[in-house]
Design a protein around this nucleic acid. Structure first.
Length: 734
RNA sequence: GCGCGGUUAGCUCAGUUGGUAGAGCAUCCCCUUGACGUGGGGAGGGUCACAGGUUCGAAUCCUGUAUCGCGCACCA
């Protein structure tokens, strides 16, 4: 008894003359690595090699994509799978269109991100970074990064990425660091850099400061305390900061407090005994909020810091870097603020200073985006970049559409951010990163940019300077990536491939990275770093939920490619996926495209078998009327698809090709061909055979950017004289 | 609080200058054994969130409302 369910595919076709592999379903596992190796050996990922081999004309226009440097601290996730797919589609399409195409891969040391990953590893081993000597820790993380990057790179290859590995860059490469240092120096010379003793966002757990972008606002319900402060009632959500409060602030127009004058002193009883407070009038006060009176803690609050700066008030540190109270807190000194708060309230209550407590006060607290620890603002000396001027130029190029955003609405978001930009703190108190080339005077707190390590004495006070131990915010280096990797300013690559054509990345990086690349690119090179920004959406699980390790719904793209093949995975993430929209990824969808890959395989079996002995004639011109009609439909379809490709609508292009190959070519044309091929008219037969071969060759070429492996594999069996590898064949119509 | 999006078939989403709604998957029915059951043909299913407005005509443009999501924000 024959069970047709386990019958081998095509096994009922004993006289087949096609190569044996077509008698079985397409086997991605047996194919992909072999094909990728062949591509890599061919050198065609490298535009120079394409020109040498005659695949690309010497005078062709360049097309450049710089790959967002992959974080070298983990392994490939679904988001990477999407990036690699979209960028590879762009790259392969342009290469086939004849452009001098460069897709430049890179790795990011990803400063803080990597350090956090490594700290978790240390934690598991029962160690902490604070007990490891700096250079040892740096070396450990470097080894970790190098080990990881090997994994990442092999995974990028698995995705079929046709990037030029010979030009690969790492953010800690010597030449990259050199460019970053020069930018630091130039910013200083142009008065766009300053060392400021300013209030910064400090994470007590990670022991580093952040820029405004690394802070996540979180709504919380906490106690809100109304405290008696002499004749006033002040309100606060943070009683533990109130020890040093000796200024009481109100709005100058507030009639309720008209009797009090700016600068007036009053004596009052406070947490740890009697103090003298000074009245300050400032219009930043919202008369409607609370009692319209507040005391200030300039060292630990940005608003208060602003008031203190304007009025020249004293600033005193209350909480240390670990989140513990300092001696100013008297009996509470050394206690962690979390523990101290209720005890402070108890004491205030016993002194009769608590008027009322609102236990359900809803407000927003600023937390560390990594660990969720409440940010403790601290005053620190750090390097800041003045952003206003840099932002102005960026605003110009975006408004004039010299840079175009896809999808469009990212443009508005970016403009809004740039218009309200604040100075950028680029100092990080972590080991893993590019060391800031600067000297600091511990005596008078002056900072000096010192690329050549020459400065030994402070100009201001004559004191001995020490090396700045901080490292750059990782985004300071990655924001210079497009020109740095191309060898700015003198390298030929920079002259040929810059400005780049497209920056394809995730929408979550629109400020972190994209906006800053535009600003620094314009600043250093006087040109936009890229002409188009293409933002893909977040990859989510099948239910539309964000993937996270804690939810356990993380989909590893490599599991999917192993199971269904890379081509199927690529189709699944690109078909119907509009830019900017989040993409729910399910194995269902990947299965559907695995079927398509196999369908193409079976189409080929039919075409090769029924045209056996026939070779594709390049200039065949005796097509039957029916075939001419089909050619018209096909070429119109290809013209549409080309237009979609040129306008980066891969989600439509891929769908149209899918539809044509399956429901037009396979369902209609192949069925209709059977009687013709078995018929008596030799001219019709000849015409149909040529048409089938020609159309299959068109489909293979058009699908190649989307499904590179299976198309290349089929291409190798096509009866076409003088063919090249499909990767450098011409896109249909070109 | 301000800003930006989304709201279309059971699910995920298209719908590019306004012309009586589309795809994939899912569901149901039928058919098929020499390319392919990872197949072929067909069906059901939507008052395009809601309310106004502009228009001969609105999913599409304008105003407002609701709801979800995201971003920004120095209300102690």
């Amino acid at each position: 008894m024959e069970d047709k369910n386990i019958q081998p595919q095509g096994g009922s076709y004993p006289d087949s003359k096609v190569p044996e592999k077509f008698l079985k379903p397409y086997d991605s596992k047996a194919t992909e690595d072999r094909i990728y190796e062949m591509w890599e050996k061919s050198g065609f990922f490298n535009p120079d090699r394409c020109v040498e081999a005659g695949a690309t004309s010497k005078d062709e226009k360049p097309f450049t994509i710089i790959m967002p440097p992959t974080n070298a601290n983990g392994s490939l996730h679904a988001g990477h799978g999407l990036v690699m797919t979209i960028e590879d589609i762009m790259t392969r399409y342009k290469r086939m269109c004849g452009y001098k195409t460069l897709w430049l891969p890179g790795l990011d040391h990803a400063g803080f991100e990597t350090q956090v990953v490594y700290e978790k590893k240390l934690e598991k081993e029962g160690r902490t970074r604070f007990e490891i000597e700096r250079s040892t820790l740096y070396k450990e993380i470097m080894d970790f990064t190098i080990a990881n990057s090997a994994t990442i790179k092999s995974q990028v290859r698995k995705m079929g990425a046709s990037c030029d590995w010979s030009r690969e860059k790492f953010t800690l490469d010597e030449d990259i660091v050199k460019v970053v240092y020069q930018t630091f120096k130039k910013l200083s010379e142009d008065d766009l850099l300053y060392r400021g003793k300013r209030i910064v966002s400090w994470c007590p757990k990670h022991q580093t400061s952040f820029s405004d972008l690394e802070i996540k606002d979180e709504e919380r319900v906490e106690g809100f305390y109304y405290l008696k402060y002499g004749p006033f009632t002040i309100s606060t959500s943070r009683p533990e900061t109130k020890f040093g409060d000796k200024y009481v602030v109100m709005h100058p127009d507030d009639k309720r407090y008209a009797e009090y004058k700016d600068g007036q002193k009053i004596d009052l009883e406070w947490i740890n005994g009697p103090i003298t407070a000074t009245i300050i009038k400032d219009s930043v006060i919202d008369m409607e909020f609370g009692t319209g009176v507040m005391t200030i803690t300039p060292w630990h609050d940005p608003v208060d810091f602003g008031i203190a700066e304007r009025h020249g008030l004293d600033k005193e540190q209350i909480i240390d870097e670990q989140g513990k109270l300092l001696p100013v807190a008297g009996e509470f000194a050394g206690m962690h603020i979390k523990k101290a708060r209720p005890q402070i309230i108890t004491k205030l209550q016993s002194k009769g200073l608590v008027e009322k407590i609102d236990a359900n006060y809803k407000h927003v607290v600023r937390t560390c985006y990594k660990c969720g620890t409440v940010i403790e603002p601290q005053i620190k000396s750090q390097w800041f970049v003045r952003m206003k001027k840099l932002a102005e130029r960026a605003l110009e190029v975006i408004k004039s559409h010299e840079i175009v955003y896809i999808p469009e609405h990212y443009e508005k978001i970016t403009l809004h951010w740039l218009e309200n930009i604040i100075d950028w703190n680029i100092s990080r108190q972590i080991v893993w990163g590019i060391p800031i080339p600067a000297k600091l005077c511990p005596t008078c707190d002056t900072g000096y940019v010192d690329l050549d390590d020459k400065i030994v004495k402070c100009d201001k006070c004559g004191g001995k300077v020490v090396k700045d131990n901080d490292t750059f915010d990782t985004w300071f280096s990655s924001s210079q990536w497009p020109y740095a990797v191309l060898g700015f300013p003198d390298n030929d690559d920079f002259k040929t491939f810059y400005p780049t054509d497209i920056m394809e990345t995730g929408g979550d990086l629109v400020f972190f990275w994209v906006a800053r690349m535009i600003m620094l690119g314009l600043y250093r090179t006087d040109k936009v770093p890229f002409k188009t920004v293409y933002m893909h959406g977040l990859v989510q699980d099948a239910k539309g939920q964000k993937m996270s390790k804690s939810k356990g719904n993380v989909i590893n793209p490599l599991d999917l490619t192993a199971q269904f093949g890379t081509d199927a995975f690529r189709m699944a993430v690109v078909v119907g996926n509009t830019p900017g929209t989040s993409l729910p990824l399910s194995s269902n969808k990947v299965t559907a495209y695995k079927k398509f890959v196999n369908k193409l395989w079976n189409i080929t079996r039919f075409v090769l078998d029924s045209t056996y002995g026939e070779e594709l004639v390049a200039d065949f011109d005796r097509f039957s009327e029916a075939d001419q009609k089909h050619i018209g439909v096909r070429d119109a379809l290809i013209a549409e698809v080309s237009k979609e490709m040129d306008e980066y609508r891969f989600y439509i292009a891929s769908e149209k090709l899918y539809h044509y190959a399956w429901h037009e070519f396979a369902d209609k044309i192949l069925e209709e061909s059977k009687p013709i091929l078995n018929g008596t008219s030799e001219t019709d037969k000849k015409s149909r055979k040529q048409f089938l071969l020609q159309t299959l060759s068109v489909i293979l070429r058009a699908l190649h950017p989307f499904m590179p492996f299976v198309t290349e594999e089929i291409w190798s069996e096509m009866p076409i004289k003088g063919k090249s590898l499909l990767i450098v064949e011409k896109w249909p119509g070109r």
